[in-house]
Amino acid sequence: MRGAHAAVIVGGCAVIVGAGFAAAPPLAGGTATADPTASAAQGSQTFDGPPISNLRGTYQAQITVTDGAVTDVVALQAGTTAPESVQVNTMAIPEFKKRVLEAQTWDVDAVSGASYTSPAFLESLEGAFEEAGLK
């Protein structure tokens, strides 16, 4: 299940993952380094970032390191609950009317929208890199 989620991190995250690879070349090439975690470079190992919370919930990253290179990034937590609970939650508002909304051009005085960005996942990801000795 977690493996399946790994494939879905795109966009902003991919940039950071890329940065992780960039930080990793000495290990990625399979060459030995003085880093004590270099022994972990044999085979595959996972490293969990710390759970980072903000008002939107808790975010936690996990990376998989294979032969010294990051091969996978998974969101163990993204927001307050596990992704698996999404279906259950969206179905569970009985007293509400269900609608289909389409983006349209309307004449408005102002727009209400989320203006909040969450660096918490990236912070956790950074912790996982650190844990893996990749930064």
Binding site: V10, G11, G12, A78, Y116, P119, A120, F121
Partner: peptide, 8 residues
């Protein structure tokens, strides 16, 4: 729509 979470 937190930028990161939304992309997961």
């Amino acid at each position: 729509s937190a930028q990161v979470a939304d992309h997961i």
